[in-house]
Computed example of a mutant assay.
Amino acid sequence: MITRRDVLTASAGIVLAVADRVAPVLAQPLAKTVHVLTGFTPGLQDALARLVTGQMSDYAEIIVVETRPGAGGRIAVEAVKNADADGSVMLLAPLGFMMFFPHVYRSLRYQPSDFTPVSTVASTPTLLMVGPKVPADVKTLADFVAWCRANPKLATFGTPGAGTTLHFLGTTLGRSAGFDFLHVPYQGGGAIQDLVKGVIAAAVMPIGSALGLVQSGDLRALATTGPRRSPFVPAVPTMREAGYPALEDLTWFAFFVPAKTPAPIVEKLNASIQAAVRTDEVRSGMAKLAFEPDVIAMGDFARLIASESDRWKAIVQATGFVPTD
């Protein structure tokens, strides 16, 4: 299975080669307004889109970021699938939209083959947090697992929705640790609000969703899912360090265009995105959002989607989850 480490190692030389090859194509921006769609209400994702596209004037003179929330992000994905394949409409989305959704929705009206993956831009691990419902002496993941086993009726965790990668990470933790971890789905930031209020015991969320509350001590972070400790919470161990290597996972955010977009346009867009991510403005802006710059070359990106899709298919099936409409 191709891993994140394999991808980043292989990509280093390829990125420079692609940039050199398409440099002549980048001479002039597209003579049109370009639209970038995201699938959620305003928040971290559209902020990331605005940050990156703000440094892409070599690709287009005007780039408009639009939020198209609904159906777990699928409305935006379907809109891009049906858009003109001329580089004027793009999707910025978590990689899970392509590698994960096909395994949780029966009536998905798109397939990964309907899109051309252009470039990843950032990644973030997931954070397991607990709130005041959990006693203050629970300080580690091992402590929390023991508490959940002793208090099965209180062992609840919230996420932004059922059928998400966050949902399955929490469920897999419970299965791996031998306790019933009850999932409570929310919309938007409701899980964090109820976690702070003590309504639920834990939440599984991207780091940026609650970093301030963790830093202030209102919430306690027990583990992250990254392959290494996050620079934003360096004192928090990884799931692998805590004894759960199967829960290692990153959420990548990436740009996609409709499948039939001509290769020269895709290459121009790829080079523009990667150049934007290398700027100090984008890197400092990502740090404020608790994202890490993470660029993967096009060929490795496509292989990563296929590999991660197989991994998540096995995880979903192991939980007994029944695909929904």
Score class of each variant (00 low, 15 high):
residue 66 E to R: 12
residue 258 P to S: 13
residue 21 R to N: 09
residue 230 S to Y: 00
residue 118 V to I: 10
residue 173 L to W: 04
residue 66 E to W: 07
residue 5 R to Q: 13
residue 128 L to D: 05
residue 42 P to V: 05
residue 12 A to N: 00
residue 166 L to N: 12
residue 296 I to W: 00
residue 240 R to L: 06
residue 65 V to R: 07
residue 4 R to P: 03
residue 315 I to Y: 04
residue 320 G to P: 06
residue 172 T to A: 15
residue 198 G to M: 11
residue 217 G to S: 00
residue 54 G to P: 13
residue 261 T to R: 08
residue 309 S to E: 10
residue 206 P to V: 13
residue 288 K to G: 15
residue 243 G to K: 02
residue 60 A to Y: 05
residue 118 V to D: 04
residue 266 V to R: 08
residue 77 V to C: 13
residue 224 T to S: 09
residue 40 F to C: 04
residue 98 M to I: 12
residue 37 L to K: 02
residue 310 D to P: 05
residue 88 S to N: 10
residue 145 V to S: 04
residue 286 M to Y: 03
residue 243 G to R: 02
residue 174 G to K: 04
residue 292 E to K: 05
residue 116 T to F: 03
residue 268 K to M: 11
residue 64 V to G: 03
residue 32 K to Q: 15
residue 101 F to V: 14
residue 302 A to H: 02
residue 111 Q to V: 07
residue 164 T to D: 13
residue 258 P to E: 14
residue 138 V to D: 12
residue 280 D to I: 05
residue 188 G to E: 05
residue 267 E to H: 13
residue 48 L to C: 12
residue 141 L to F: 02
residue 268 K to H: 00
residue 275 A to E: 07
residue 174 G to I: 07
residue 155 A to D: 05
residue 38 T to F: 01
residue 218 D to G: 11
residue 165 T to V: 14
residue 143 D to L: 04
residue 240 R to S: 15
residue 276 A to I: 04
residue 16 L to H: 03
residue 144 F to N: 07
residue 49 A to F: 07
residue 313 K to M: 14
residue 265 I to F: 07
residue 213 L to D: 09
residue 232 F to E: 02
residue 44 L to M: 08
residue 147 W to H: 03
residue 231 P to S: 08
residue 150 A to M: 11
residue 53 T to K: 05
residue 312 W to K: 06
residue 103 H to S: 15
residue 314 A to S: 15
residue 148 C to L: 10
residue 157 F to G: 09
residue 325 D to P: 00
residue 73 G to I: 11
residue 235 A to N: 13
residue 3 T to C: 05
residue 289 L to C: 14
residue 160 P to Q: 11
residue 33 T to I: 01
residue 231 P to R: 04
residue 123 S to C: 14
residue 318 A to E: 09
residue 62 I to Y: 03
residue 140 T to Q: 03
residue 310 D to M: 14
residue 53 T to V: 14
residue 67 T to P: 06
residue 164 T to V: 10
residue 105 Y to C: 12
residue 147 W to V: 04
residue 136 A to Y: 04
residue 194 D to W: 03
